[in-house]
Design a protein around this nucleic acid. Structure first.
Lengths: 151, 151
DNA sequence: GCAACATGGTTGCCATGGCAACCATGTTGC
DNA sequence: GCAACATGGTTGCCATGGCAACCATGTTGC
């Protein structure tokens, strides 16, 4: 049985294109970041820290901001700390808490990698979308995210 | 430095929504498949085999069809075979080749899981997209995929 | 002010995935 | 018909990620 039997032909085509896009766009962006020595996950962490005041965040808040499980963040931060990209210290106001901070080295890496990544996002995404198409995309994305969030 | 500095506000918002969508839609679909005992990867393999004549494909062709590295397929098929979802045999016409086939049990699982997955794809994706928006999406996806393919 | 509960993080276990090395079989050019 | 190359798969190594169990610290209700 064809599991897509009750999608019409156009929907099947679109869904298949969507699945391909998810895979290939991710791959192309990952390759770009890899040239600066970062994985997509590394970059998510660094970019978020870079946006935070002082370049640091509570682990809890960082995890929430990038949508990760706390276990995933804990383990990833351990690896990144080993590479000198982040540092950890205890939270002043909560005996359980950890504050994760960008290192000076990571701040440098982020400048370069961020610029390159941005160029890639332009090249592989925004350059291919007309303004009126972007309107549509925004609408659709917001509906999809709302529904996914409600479960 | 904010790595998104040269995206305008609307682009930043859209990109952020896009990243969220990739993560959350994937997660919601994965949870659905998990209820039928399958991972997204399992389902990709089974669905493709289910579409093939006789429910079987050369490993090489299966990997190409779902866009996987041959090593990834090899290892995943080993695990799936261990769970009784696929079987392996040598290709008649190529001493190097393996033919991967759906088992009878997997064909059953695929009927149920396929229907459930399809319902989820409707609920979390197509139900939220108007026909004219689907046109736009198709166009944009095809451009993005073409560019990602050219590198 | 203490028991019950909530929150923040870490660790272990297991499945997953990328990449390179490897091995075996096929194919090609001469 | 053989050397060089190509193709098809498997394995090893390492990083990654989900989930549950666990431990420590905070908070709440009484």
């Amino acid at each position: 049985m064809n599991p897509q039997a009750s999608l019409d032909e156009r929907e099947q085509r679109t869904w298949s294109a969507f699945v391909t896009m998810r895979r290939d766009l991710e791959a192309v962006l990952a390759r770009g970041l890899a040239e600066d020595g970062l994985s997509v996950s590394d970059f998510e962490v660094l970019a978020r820290l870079g946006q935070a005041p002082g370049g640091e965040l509570r682990a809890r808040d960082l995890a929430a901001a990038i949508g990760w499980d706390k276990a995933r963040l804990s383990k990833h931060v351990t690896r990144m700390a080993g590479r000198g990209l982040v540092s950890r210290r205890e939270a002043a106001d909560d005996g359980r808490g950890q504050v994760i901070a960008l290192t000076a080295e990571a701040a440098q890496v982020l400048v370069t990698a961020g610029a390159n990544h941005l160029a890639a996002v332009r090249r592989y995404f925004f350059d291919l979308i007309e303004p009126d198409e972007l309107d549509v995309l925004e609408q659709v994305l917001s509906r999809i995210n709302a529904r996914a969030a409600e479960g």
